[in-house]
Amino acid sequence: MIYVMCLALFVVGLYGICCKKNLIKIILGFIIMDYAVNLFIILIGYRKNGIAPILDKTMDVNKFALSSVDPMPQAIVLTAIVIGLAVTALMVAVCVRIYERYGTFDITKIRKLKG
């Protein structure tokens, strides 16, 4: 069920990118899509009633391995979020500059390059 929600989120993001005309909305769509994937990755490692994957000195390793969630997706997601942040920041920066040059956020009017 939750995977379906995740997929729905992804599709919402895609819709935003493809069908919206406003640059800001496209960026928002992009962020939504990015987060849908991040959510998906986190869900992969999820375990019901699992504990945080931090090995304490007091814990038994085998018991820990049985009860903790998978730490790998979390590491991945952290990186992915940072990358997503970089892309978003760059997008917003370019978007601001585009507004300076074109005076519009409408993507269908930003079409000097064609043919």
């Binding site: 899509m33 990015d34 998906f40 585009i98 040059r101 074109y102 079409r111 000097k112 390059l113």
Partner: peptide, 25 residues
């Protein structure tokens, strides 16, 4: 940072971003 360059960069970014998301997925 001329008009054409920014426009190209943005389009490239959106399409490249979609590709990257696909790869991550």
């Amino acid at each position: 940072t001329e008009a054409e360059e920014l426009e190209a960069s943005f389009k490239y970014m959106v399409m490249g971003g979609i590709a990257s998301t696909f790869i991550l997925l």
